[in-house]
Design a protein around this nucleic acid. Sequence first.
DNA 1: ACCAATTTGTTCGTATGTATG
DNA 2: TCATACATACGAACAAATTGG
Lengths: 240, 240
Amino acid sequence: MEITRESGVAVWRQIQQILEREIREQTFRPGARLPTEAELARRFMVNRHTVRQAIARLEDRGLLRTDQGRGTFVQEAVIDYQVSRKTRFSENLSRQNRTSDRVLLTTADLPASTEIARALRLRRGAMVAYVLCAGETDGRRISVSAHYFPKPRFDGIGALMAETKSFTHAMRRFGVEDYARQTTRILAKMPTSEEARLLAMPRNRPLIVTEGLNIDGSGNRVEYCVTKFVGDLVQMLVEH
Amino acid sequence: MEITRESGVAVWRQIQQILEREIREQTFRPGARLPTEAELARRFMVNRHTVRQAIARLEDRGLLRTDQGRGTFVQEAVIDYQVSRKTRFSENLSRQNRTSDRVLLTTADLPASTEIARALRLRRGAMVAYVLCAGETDGRRISVSAHYFPKPRFDGIGALMAETKSFTHAMRRFGVEDYARQTTRILAKMPTSEEARLLAMPRNRPLIVTEGLNIDGSGNRVEYCVTKFVGDLVQMLVEH
DNA sequence: ACCAATTTGTTCGTATGTATG
DNA sequence: TCATACATACGAACAAATTGG
């Protein structure tokens, strides 16, 4: 594809359109790295600034993502993660025709920190069952979530999770037929190196963190969970 | 304050507690930069790693924030911004005993982009009234928001906003007694240099972006708005 | 585009203290 | 008492980001 000058269409805009088509036609696949700005400048025989202008527009439109020192990447499709009273990981993804997988990373029994105790209305230091999970869709890891359950009641939920891979099923074994999300707090932060490693993401891209409180039919607090999503791949959707 | 060794309390924990008290007592004010790690190491006569351990814990607890190449900062208080059917900037802050200010940055009439047209159910290129605002609380800028109104109906809303500084009041002049949020999309992204400038924040801290659609009593789409919050200062709170 | 100074981030290695069996 | 494991503390060097010239 050639660049035509003095055509009434700015050179950067022509480049933008060429790149856009190549992304659409999967010449550059989602998540793949584009050639460097210098290489693109050579290919189109323009100055690097001109390529940067085209890239900046595509970034604005969400088609590309640039990481300083790493390169320019084709943005993968973003998942709309619905936050509602009935927030369920697998349902949320199957609604969008995506596969969903849970990976159990750790289970343990822990004394509640101040924060967890406040959320679950326990005394600080009271024992809670802790489950650390990863969430994947279409083979890509998109979230890591920590789940806390009050301990006498949900003893052994970690083992059950290993078996069922589903909180809905595991909770049912404890007589909780249905649980509902009472509140969700949503915030943005940069990942620690550990979080970046678990989510296979660079450190200079943001996380979306949700802190949720689940209650059973009688209003008892049954679960506090903190989920960290790759910010580039997930958006939270709230219907009021 | 002195560090006592072999006291049964780890040195890093003692340092953590000292820094914690100094933050609580405003020796280090919110937003202020702490002495460098090297300086603190000299002050407490320990290795820099030991100071870093203390700082890392305080960072986990949300009291400090570190920026590579810049320093360590006392985290300012975080605002819980309630996202609901009735999302109002000033009410949201007064609920938390904070002052609120709107700063009108720009108003214009624009043809709708694809995204805006889709949100407001207009033809692409149809005219919309555009208002760019900043939101401040206690003298600190926390948000920049772009508002789009369908044009024949809300002609001149920019001028009205300049006068009233309140969307609720301005909308009332157009016969919209009450409006409600239908959906909110929440995402995280890194700021452009322009966004960072407008929000007086560094480029390596995340934004929280909300995209909201407001409807009037009859279900007509009256406003589409995109608000960008300083991620370090604001958390979204959803009650289900 | 580049350099220099400053500051936090990371990774080695080494030594010591503490808890456990 | 010995062995082991783990957390604590220190030291050195280098990497990465920011700032200002």
